[in-house]
Write a protein that binds this DNA or RNA. Sequence first.
DNA 1: ACTCCACTGGAACTCAAGGGTA
DNA 2: TACCCTTGAGTTCCAGTGGAGT
Length: 327
Amino acid sequence: MLSAPDALDEDAVPERELVVHRRDELDRLRKTLSPPTPSDLTYLIGPTGTGKTMLSKLVVDILERKHNIRTVYINCWEHYERTAILYQAVSGLCDAAIQRGSTGRSELIDYLNDDPPQPQILILDEADQLADKRVLYDLHEAPVNVVLIANNEDDLFADIDDRVRSRLAVGQRIECGAYSTRELAEILEQRAAHALPSRRYTPQHLDWIADHADGDARVAIRTLRVANEQRDGNLDRPTIDEALPQARSELRQKSLHQLNDHQRAAYDVIADVDDTPLTTTEVAERYQKRVDNPRTTRQVRTYLRKLHQYNLLERHGTSNYRWSLIE
DNA sequence: ACTCCACTGGAACTCAAGGGTA
DNA sequence: TACCCTTGAGTTCCAGTGGAGT
């Protein structure tokens, strides 16, 4: 049994005392947003599993409790179209009766530009996934403090014209680098102490998990949870060895659940091939044989790019791509 | 160095769906 | 209930790019 199951949930916002090795970033973010400044931008940049989302949610949690601040969190995997982002922002920040689908973009922008009765913070997680980056400019013009979370600043600023880019370039940057093995082990130690107080594990077990998680706290925490479930807390090396691939597989499954049937079929085409990467044309042809009412090759190209962005596929080459699964 | 051609991704377009309104 | 508006998914078209062949 877990005494504090959230401590082993990689998506849950932890208590402040569970935040280790991100204290500086936490304090900087809190200072930056206390109070939130209208039209200010804050960037949280770092690889997957380095605590960016956790930091932003934790700070917002603290600020909401202590101050009269209105906040909205938007995950750009779920909502990536320009209008969808504006709709989510207006729904969360404005007391306006708006209807999805029948409120135009300009009207949504007008709502956002109204003087707010209280300070506002808008968090865009996975902001490099936005389909139309012009929404960043829409939001920057509004009286709201925007926090942009992304893996990499180059991707975030890709396909933005120079004029908009220079206006967005201002703002506080907080970098979250990949965790070292030592740091990850200490994070696990904290989590395990909360969730598994009977301590049926050793520091060596946590080191072993940390060493194999490639700096990704999500993988490390999920591995600890899987291993614990398998042996009900009695960790040993063989259990951890089994738990690691299972944890990675479970995280991958979470991403796969977000795909539609056609995207999934394209993914399965590549998954069915052992080791040999397929060209885009090969994927499209096999996919089109596999499904009823197949989409066009052009659409398959869009799917593959999306799967690549989801970190489900590896793309080989610079012009004529070949595709394989990420192991 | 040149040409050819497959591949890529942006832009413009169509279409179906969903909600508002008269 | 018919019409209008908006959106998002998908298609078509096409200019740019880079690899392969000569």
